[in-house]
């Protein structure tokens, strides 16, 4: 039986240790830097295409750049929920309590989602202040895209956790390498046809790429984003199930080998 109280305790533990002013400054800073790079790049491109009044390129680039942070922030925060337990040598203690795996996963996903939402809010404010770009100007599709990206963030967060559980300390760097490697295939900054043919197939299997393609098409050409968003949700559902199964298998395996081995590495 899932206990809301136990989930609440896990969420509170992570929120309490994670959210400091320096954390807020850090997420705002990186979001601002990326917004400036791609906002300015979009403006420069617009000037070169003689489409001075058409701000589609700028808005699409800024929106996708900031939206990407939903995935990144959610995945990293979920990954850090496990890493924090390992740094504090708290994992064994945690599972000596009646806490269930499902409750723990939900307890890690919630702070990840909160962090992602704070990040997107900061990004929305910065884009509005510095570029006059409202990333939610498209209305409902933007919010649906946000939900799809949140689920992608959960999946990547679970994969980071799986790698840390499987490989221990070594898994941390590999996990972040994997997340970073998905950026070129997620089509955040360019359409899918820019990729070489072989990689286009791979990119079309990534749920994030459909979200970003849909958003870009909608912002730049007013195209219907729903087919892309629907595909992203279907892919997300499949990958989420796989990620949860993988996590359960890895956790059982790690428990069999001894969770203490993970804590001792740090």
């Amino acid at each position: 039986m899932i206990s809301i109280q136990r989930i609440g305790a896990i969420v509170f533990r992570h929120l309490k240790t994670m959210y400091r002013i320096s954390w807020l400054v850090e997420i705002s800073y990186w979001t601002l830097l990326d917004a400036i790079i791609f906002g300015s790049l979009g403006k420069a491109t617009t000037m070169l295409t003689d489409a001075g009044s058409n701000l589609g390129i700028v808005n699409a680039l800024i929106t996708n750049t900031i939206m990407w942070y939903v995935v990144l922030r959610c995945a990293i925060t979920i990954g850090f929920c496990l890493l924090n337990e390992l740094f504090d040598a708290n994992l064994i203690t945690l599972f000596a309590t009646p806490l269930h795996k499902t409750e723990w996963i939900i307890g890690c996903i919630i702070p990840g989602s909160i962090a992602a939402l704070i990040n997107i809010f900061v990004g929305w404010l910065l884009a509005l202040c510095f570029f006059g770009c409202n990333i939610f100007a498209t209305g409902l599709p933007a919010f649906v895209a946000l939900c799809s990206l949140l689920i992608s963030g959960w999946i990547l967060g679970l994969i980071i956790m799986c790698m840390v559980l499987f490989m221990g300390k070594k898994g941390t760097s590999w996990a972040f390498i994997i997340v970073w490697s998905l950026v070129p295939f997620s089509c955040v900054y360019y359409p899918i046809d820019v990729l070489p043919k072989a990689f286009q197939i791979f990119a079309s299997c990534i749920p994030m790429s459909h979200v970003f393609i849909g958003l870009r098409e909608l912002i730049m050409h007013g195209a219907n984003p729903w087919p892309h968003l629907a595909i992203s949700f279907i892919l997300n559902a499949v990958y989420l199930v796989i990620a949860i199964v993988l996590f359960v298998v890895m956790f059982q395996r790690s428990k069999k080998n001894g969770l203490a081995r993970l804590e001792l590495e740090w």
């Binding site: 790049l41 491109t45 490697s181 950026v183 360019y190 359409p191 990729l195």
Partner: peptide, 24 residues
């Protein structure tokens, strides 16, 4: 680490460059 992160960065900006070239 150096090679991988650097390669991903180059691939990313190379593709952005390609996209901008096709737009302009």
């Amino acid at each position: 680490g150096i090679l991988w992160y650097w390669m991903i960065g180059i691939v990313l900006y190379g593709l952005i460059g390609r996209s901008i070239s096709s737009l302009t």
